[in-house]
Computed example of a mutant assay.
Amino acid sequence: MNHKTRVAAALLLGALATPVLAAETDALPYLSGGYAYTFDDSARHSDAGQGLFLGAGAALNPFWGLELSLFGDRFASGGNHGNRWQDYGLKLDTQFFYSRDPAFSPYVGIGVGAMYSKLRNGNDSSSDPFIDFGVGFLHYFSGFADGRLGFRADARYRWVDLGDTGNAGHLTEPVLRVGLVWALGEKSEPVKPVLDADGDGVPDERDRCPDTPKGVKVDANGCPLDSDGDGVPDSLDQCPGTAPGVAVDARGCPARMGSGRFKISGSGAVLRFEDVHFAFDHDELSDYAKAMLDDAAQVINDTAQKYPALKVDISGHTDAIGSEGYNQALSERRAQKVKQYLVRKGVDEGRISLYSYGESKPEVSNDTEDGRAQNRRAETRTREE
């Protein structure tokens, strides 16, 4: 086995032995140029050839690519009676990339082209097709020129028939190329992984309930579904379909606090009662509000027996219509009316603290009439001192 046959065998085994890797990055088109060395073939009757090449490549998909290149080589005579050649050629290469990792992108290539060969010490010349096969790789320098500049190496085995030109006949010659590559175009931004820590199908960046237990159905915000709106997720609700406004316990069933007609949330000494709502620019209590406060007073007094240090906070609020000063005063009157009613129903006045916020703490937007109606309110809460 001569040295050229051994080179061809090595190229083939190298191509087959390299493990196929997944495409890791988008491949940009590139320009390439460098030095070429053609090992001597005794049929040329000359020394090895040296020359330059220039090419451009582009990806067809993550694995396949095409490259078009021009090259020129000169061969010294190697003796008094040897041939001195000058070759020019054009080649189209098909490449299969085993990986698109910029740090190391190995490939197998098959090229076809045409080559013009001329004897510099004679008048013979020939234009002939050729084919080559081999392996190569691209390596981009990550810390230089924004990762666009790289190095390449390529080893091929070329078959070409020069016929009677220089009595060369059929040539089989290894060709080694080394050079630089320059990537063109815009680099794509790396795709950020979508994080979903609780696995509920809602990305963490939009998940308002990031610790939802596995298997619990959630809404578009990543929070457990609560079909009846009672504050207890469907997965825990043992009494689905509770009527709106009915106070429920931790199981989602009507709570035993008060009459059950009015919504009361919380547990122990920390409770929030249904808000008292007012007509526009008024502080009078409606019949519904009085019935609700009757219920609240009973629950407060019962809770105070268990928690002697119980405190009651009442805060008044308004919508955004009117001046801030007027609304501040109106919110004070609303809170005071709720306090007076609870005291009449037996709640110890010493437990009660009043707060007035005017229009500064809206429950919802003031842009609609419904929103403004919800903001005209007084809130009642309990806490343990």
Rank of each mutant, 00 (worst) to 15 (best):
S117I: 07
L162Q: 05
A56C: 06
A8V: 02
D294K: 00
S265H: 15
W182D: 08
F39Q: 09
F262G: 01
A103R: 01
N2P: 05
N2K: 06
F97E: 09
R377L: 07
E173Y: 04
K361H: 14
A243Q: 04
D132I: 00
A43S: 10
S267G: 06
K192M: 11
D132Y: 03
R208W: 14
G136T: 02
A114F: 04
C223V: 08
G215R: 13
D230V: 07
T18K: 14
T25E: 11
G150H: 06
A114N: 13
Y98A: 04
P213W: 04
L12E: 09
R377G: 11
G229K: 09
T165S: 07
R377Q: 10
S77C: 07
N301V: 09
L16V: 12
K290E: 13
T382A: 08
T380M: 04
E363N: 15
V108I: 08
D313C: 04
P210M: 07
W64E: 15
S267W: 06
K311L: 10
S315Q: 08
L149A: 11
F104Q: 09
K339S: 02
G134T: 06
P102Y: 01
D319N: 06
F141K: 11
I321Q: 08
I300H: 06
Y357L: 07
V112N: 08
E24W: 08
L70F: 15
A320H: 14
Y35H: 09
V276L: 05
S267N: 12
C239V: 07
G222K: 09
W159C: 04
T172G: 00
G166V: 03
D226Q: 14
Y37H: 11
T212G: 03
D161Y: 04
Q238P: 13
L90D: 05
S125H: 14
T165V: 05
D226A: 06
G231V: 11
L171W: 02
G79Y: 10
F144L: 08
G241D: 13
S235G: 13
L138A: 09
V202G: 02
R256I: 15
Q50A: 14
E324G: 12
D132H: 01
I352E: 02
V276N: 00
A247E: 12
A27R: 04
L176K: 00
K361M: 15
I352W: 00
M115N: 12
W64F: 14
G215D: 12
A8G: 10
I131P: 11
K290A: 08
E379C: 05
G143I: 02
Q50T: 15
L90I: 12
V347P: 01
L285H: 00
L60T: 10
A9E: 11
K361E: 15
D128I: 03
S117T: 08
G215F: 09
Y341V: 00
K187P: 13
L92Y: 11
P174Y: 02
G371T: 07
A291R: 06
V178K: 01
D196F: 04
F144W: 13
V135I: 05
L149K: 07
I314W: 03
P190R: 02
G199Q: 10
L68P: 14
A155N: 06
T368L: 02
G147T: 05
